[in-house]
Design a protein around this nucleic acid. Structure first.
Length: 917
RNA sequence: GCCCAGGUGGCGGAACUGGUAGACGCGCACGACUCAAACUCGUGUACCUCUGGUGUGCGGGUUCGAUUCCCGCCCUGGGCACCA
């Protein structure tokens, strides 16, 4: 009887499917446990071994929790709207739904082979109208809500409208992006269009202008990473910055709650830190600078360092700022306009990244310093972004690096206002030191001076304290086809939501997935999309993150057609207990889902505001790429170790053509691609060696390893264990199939334990082995660091194999512990041990600490911190006795050699250290 | 540039709260089994100028004792708002 995964795994996968072993039960008397994976975007490339890393970890946890008696929700689905399918559609004309469908079935096949305990009855697909009906429904709720700052909650817009008609806007304290006000009378006199325009400043889903990377050639907006040096990555067309009217969501209203909500979450500190930085709360002030001369224009700046007000030597305004037109003097007009033009070509990313490249232009105007009354020049530069603060800054070159570089470059004065360092040599940026050259602030420590300055500005009316968040409202419209249509109709240009009975508003058929000639999004091509001449439909679609912002709720009740999820079910399943996914989502997706949860909670639709109690970020699995060296201008390939200064090209070659000793499969290489058919080789003993490198797994690098091929060769259990054994779940690590032999060896040994002679009574020795294992595995569960659990299992198997005979209880306990990790083998072993049903809900063994106690403890004996020898003593020996034992030891005198003992340190159960001088 | 994470043998990694650095596995070497190979089993395996010394990216510091704490650097990976 040999371990044969191909037979065992198929048998048990069939069994699970037939018996519906992992069906989620509801209602249930059991305590619930919700463990969720970030669902995948089904790409055409299929899964590689990196993808299931997190799924395996969460599956182990899900299976463990079933053993622990929980009712587990462990679902899977597909985030099936997205750009790649649309791109493929543009190229081939094939409808994205077809591509998506076939990608999904490929994913499903791949997932099924790994033996996950997903309940596939709970599957969801975000591109399914039955799903996106509710994504659209939530959008409508957002449209119909505003954020009341008095109650600190999202509330119905109807309430706001009532207030407006009763008393106007005077007492309304709400999150808004404009400052338009009205009296009750004015409100009453407004027509529909003006009212809507007025309400837009409050709605949580609203239209506003925002800056985008516009590519006229492609007729679309591009992501920052689709733009390089002012040209589109795809096609190389020019891209420029442009203001565009777009749907946005008012996430900024929730900034403070998203920040404070982090406190009680069981997330890693670094993840919380990333979110905090993204939200970017800063305490500071708006300071008003009046422009000298004409009219009464003024520039408002935001600063976190009002204490440095006396160090201001110029103002910098974002090149897109509307005031520039009004303040630029005629002689500077040309320069300013040409600078604005250049800026348009740079993406926001480039502007933030490339800080060494200093540029700017002078408007020719001056502002009056609000305290000293001095003349301050007004410049524009692309290092100031319109989207943050007020789009203008007061430059304090002495104490800010960017301002300093700017001042040096344009030879502007640098004033020192905090002591320490020399501001002519570099900016003094720290928040420590005393204020100098600053009138009433002189002598104060920075911290006190900030406070003092805020006080003074309030008194003398030169500014107002303000809390600023970096978090911007999220642009919600996309000029694409393959996404959820935004359920909005414009009646005579006034946006209104479509009637709920019309949901889902399905994606229309179009003749092409490209924008129209006029640059309208693809939906504008749909026939009969508009209802009439004055009833025009929205043509943008929702972004990828819309659907994923609430999918964890739909998993609780995926087939409900009357509501997004049943209240009772939401109450039962509640928050996600453990959420596993990549750290690349640590800001976007995680922040947006928290935002939507907060919002739905305010509306009373869900009983919690934080969706994910515990979050675990899995690391990446990198691929090992192989390169062959080809002599330049030839078809001759040489071994990587015999290049010897010859000029060669490195050519990536399929990793499957390389064996364990880095040797190329030469005939395989010739047949791999037609271009290599006539290759010649310079061989050493018939061998050509290649070079290896670790990098991201990707198709173009030919270093992708698919889970299927591993399942074929070694089995799913081996794949599962090996992925976990590679290292801590949170860390990135390279894949190297070689190491999997250790795992198959372990599985075989585990299976062979069943052949051992059985004993009638459990020995103390085997109890110690088993309980040590229970203890380790149980403790590892929390952190999902299963690499150490697996090595503990290996140790246990080795130890048990060493015993003459084993009791069936030890075998059963071991099999249950193994089962979350290698479920197929465990089921098979369980059956052979006499189990009559699936092992999946057998109670997990409990550790008895009694068996963890060792009788003898080996103490390392150190002299001045260097280990010299060991003594073995009973575990309960007192410190004094140990000390005597050491002093009496024959070797002790050797190390003392006339010196005297200054101190003896005994750490119980750890170490003995003698300090000698 | 800013933010976050990481750097330990030939390789993946282990080391609970400052207490034997290198568990476990791969690889490698030797041996057993075998006609032979594979499988399996056993032994060894950080490095060096080896009765001793050096070692956890580099340079300092705190400590009886530092992979672990502090300060200053270097390198690699991830994110930076329309890729998902």
């Amino acid at each position: 009887m040999e371990y044969d995964p191909s037979v065992i795994e198929e048998k048990w996968q069939k069994f699970w499917r037939k018996k519906n072993t992992f069906k989620t039960s509801y209602p249930s008397q059991l305590a619930k446990f919700y463990v969720l994976d970030m669902f995948p975007y089904p790409s055409g490339a299929g899964l590689h071994v990196g993808h299931p890393l997190g799924y395996i970890a969460s599956d182990i946890l899900a299976r463990y929790k079933r053993h622990k008696g929980f009712n587990v929700l462990h679902p899977m689905g597909y985030d099936s709207f997205g750009l790649p399918a649309e791109q493929f559609a543009i190229q081939t004309g094939q409808h994205p739904s077809i591509t998506t469908e076939s990608n999904i079935s490929r994913y499903r096949q791949q997932l099924d082979r790994i033996g996950f305990s997903f309940d596939w009855d709970q599957e969801i697909r975000t591109s399914d109208p039955k799903y996106y009906k509710w994504t659209q429904w939530i959008f409508i709720q957002l449209f119909n809500s505003y954020f009341n700052l008095d109650t600190n909650k999202a509330e119905s817009i109807t309430k706001l409208i009532n207030t407006l008609s009763r008393e106007g806007s005077a007492n309304i304290n709400a999150a808004r992006h404009k400052d338009q006000n009205c009296s009750a009378k004015e409100w009453a006199e407004m027509n529909t269009s003006s009212r809507e325009e007025f309400l837009q400043q409050f709605r949580l889903a609203y239209r506003s202008k925002s800056m985008v990377n516009w590519c006229p050639e492609l007729g679309t907006v591009l992501a920052n990473d689709e733009v390089s040096e002012g040209y589109s990555v795809r096609g190389g067309h020019p891209v420029s910055q442009r203001m565009m009217m777009q749907w946005s969501l008012r996430i900024s209203a929730f900034a403070e709650r998203l920040l404070s909500g982090l406190e009680n979450l069981d997330w890693s500190d670094s993840l919380k830190e990333t979110q905090k930085n993204w939200i970017g709360k800063s305490n500071g002030a708006f300071v008003k600078f009046n422009v000298i001369d004409s009219s009464n224009k003024s520039i408002e700046v935001f600063t976190t360092r009002p204490d440095t007000i006396f160090g201001v030597s110029f103002l910098v305004v974002a090149p897109e700022h509307s005031i520039i037109k009004e303040i630029t003097i005629p002689s500077q007009k040309k320069e300013i306009e040409s600078y604005q033009k250049t800026t348009k070509k740079r993406s926001e990313r480039e502007r933030q990244t490339n800080v060494k490249n200093i540029s700017g232009a002078f408007t020719g105007s001056y502002a009056k310093h609000p305290v000293t009354g001095e003349k301050i020049p007004i410049w524009i530069s692309d290092y100031v972004l319109l989207g943050y603060g007020s789009g203008a800054i007061m430059a304090v070159p002495g104490h800010d690096g960017r301002d300093w570089r700017f001042a040096k470059h344009f030879k502007l004065p640098i004033i020192q206002v905090v002591d320490g360092g020399d501001v002519q040599k570099s900016a003094v940026e720290g928040k420590e030191g005393k204020i100098i050259n600053s009138n009433f602030l002189n002598g104060y420590e920075v911290k006190d001076a900030i406070w003092k300055a805020l006080e003074n500005m309030k008194k003398n009316n030169w500014g107002s304290p303000h809390v600023q968040y970096r978090l911007r409202d999220a642009v919600f419209g996309r000029q694409r086809y393959w996404g959820e249509p935004i359920p909005i109709v414009y009646r005579d240009g006034v946006p209104e939501t479509v009637d709920l009975s019309e949901l889902p508003l399905k994606l229309p058929e179009v003749d092409s997935f490209l924008p129209t000639k006029d640059g309208d999004p693809p939906l504008a091509r749909a026939k009969d999309w508009n209802l009439s001449k004055n009833l025009i439909r929205e043509t943008t679609t929702m972004p990828g993150w819309a659907a994923s912002s609430w999918y964890f709720l739909r998993f609780m009740d995926p087939k409900n057609s009357t509501t997004f999820a049943d209240q009772q079910k939401i109450n039962y399943w509640n928050q996600v207990d453990v959420y596993v996914g990549g750290s690349e989502h640590s800001t976007g997706h995680l922040l947006y889902s928290r935002f939507w949860s907060n919002f739905l909670c305010d509306l009373g639709l869900i009983p919690f505001s934080e969706p994910f109690k515990k979050m675990v970020n899995q690391g990446m699995i990198q691929g090992v790429s192989a390169f062959v060296h080809r002599l330049n201008n030839s078809q001759t390939y040489v071994s990587s170790n015999s290049i010897k200064g010859r000029l060669t090209q490195r050519i990536p070659v399929d990793i499957k053509l390389i064996n364990e000793r880095n040797e190329l499969n030469i005939s395989g290489f010739k047949n791999w691609l037609p271009e290599y058919k006539d290759s010649e080789f310079e061989l050493n003993d018939g061998i050509l060696t290649v070079e290896r490198e670790v990098e991201k797994m990707s198709k173009s690098k030919h270093n992708v390893i698919s889970p299927d091929s591993i399942c074929d060769d070694y089995g799913a259990d081996a794949l599962r264990l090996y992925e976990m054994f590679l290292g801590p779940i949170t860390q990135s690590k390279p894949w190297d199939t070689k190491g999997i032999n250790g795992i198959t060896g372990f599985l075989r040994k585990s299976y062979r334990l069943l052949e051992k002679d059985r004993s009638d009574i459990e020995s103390l020795g085997e109890k110690k082995i088993v309980h040590k294992l229970i203890d380790k595995v149980t403790r590892d569960m929390d952190s999902l660091s299963f690499n150490t659990s697996i090595s503990a299992m290996m140790i246990a198997v080795n130890d048990l194999t060493g015993l003459k005979e084993i009791h069936i209880n030890s075998l059963k306990a071991f099999t249950i512990i193994l089962s979350p990790f290698a479920p197929h083998l465990a089921e098979e072993m369980w059956e052979l041990l006499g189990g009559e049903t699936s092992i999946s809900r057998e109670p997990f063994p409990i550790c008895n600490n009694e068996y963890l106690q060792e009788d003898l403890i080996k103490y390392p004996v150190q002299f001045n911190g260097k280990t010299r020898f060991f003594i073995e003593v009973r575990f309960d020996m007192k410190a004094k006795e140990i000390e005597q034992e050491v002093l009496n030891h024959e070797k002790t005198q050797n190390y003392i050699q006339g010196k005297s003992i200054k101190k003896i340190i005994i750490v119980p159960k750890r170490i003995v250290n003698l300090v000698i001088i």
